[in-house]
């Protein structure tokens, strides 16, 4: 099992250290050739406009789309925006997941927050019962899911913060900033 982490910009090193913690081999992906031999890909938090521009500049858009048709791909925050079909503004998107996302949906940095989430699917898959502590930073929300995409987690007010579509996963928060490896374990189960 070898998982790539898109390393164009953002907190890719944090994802790599989480994967190492659970004994998974990793690789940094900056160019299309770096996708060879990978079983899955994580797209980290960062700035989605920066990541999108660099992906276009280095010919990664089509290779990433092809990769995502077959392999597991997980986007956190900026990565989730990049995975989505629609964000209501013009910037490069992979359009792999049938989700509509809104950027910076909670306001500015002083509105960024931490909270606990009950995520049934995650607790079932990892055989645990305690809630998942989620860190939101200038976070997007998933406004709606359609097609085969389903809601994995929502806040108490109903706003969607995690979604899954087969082997594709989107979270508007940052599991890589916590010590809790359950989301990474869950992703590895999708990649297997």
């Amino acid at each position: 099992m070898k998982i790539g982490v898109l390393a164009l910009q953002g907190d890719f090193a944090e994802h790599i250290s989480m994967l190492k913690k659970i004994g998974v081999e990793t690789a940094e992906v900056r160019l299309p050739k770096h996708l060879d031999g990978l079983d899955g890909l994580i797209m980290p938090g960062g700035e989605s406009t920066t990541i999108g521009k660099l992906a276009v500049a280095y010919g990664l858009m089509e290779p990433l789309r092809e990769f995502g048709k077959i392999h597991a791909v997980w986007g956190t925050c900026a990565g989730a925006i990049f995975l989505s079909r629609d964000i209501g503004r013009d910037q490069p998107l992979l359009e792999l997941m049938d989700i509509k996302v809104r950027r910076n949906a909670f306001g500015r940095q002083i509105d960024s927050f931490e909270t606990d989430l009950e995520i049934d699917e995650l607790m079932k898959a990892t055989g645990t019962e305690h809630p998942y502590h989620a860190v939101f930073i200038r976070a997007p929300i998933i406004e709606s899911v359609s097609g085969n995409a389903k809601v994995l987690s929502a806040l108490e007010d109903g706003r969607i913060v995690a979604a899954q579509q087969g082997h594709l996963l989107a979270t508007s928060f940052h599991p890589e900033l916590t010590g809790d490896t359950r989301f990474h374990e869950y992703f590895i189960s999708l990649a297997s």
Partner: peptide, 22 residues
């Protein structure tokens, strides 16, 4: 569900999102 803002994790975290950037 307790929600916290302005935590050390939040403050450090935004800088982590800027890594590898200009």
């Amino acid at each position: 569900m307790e929600t916290k803002t302005g935590t050390w994790t939040e403050k450090k975290g935004l800088a982590q999102m800027l890594k590898g950037g200009v």
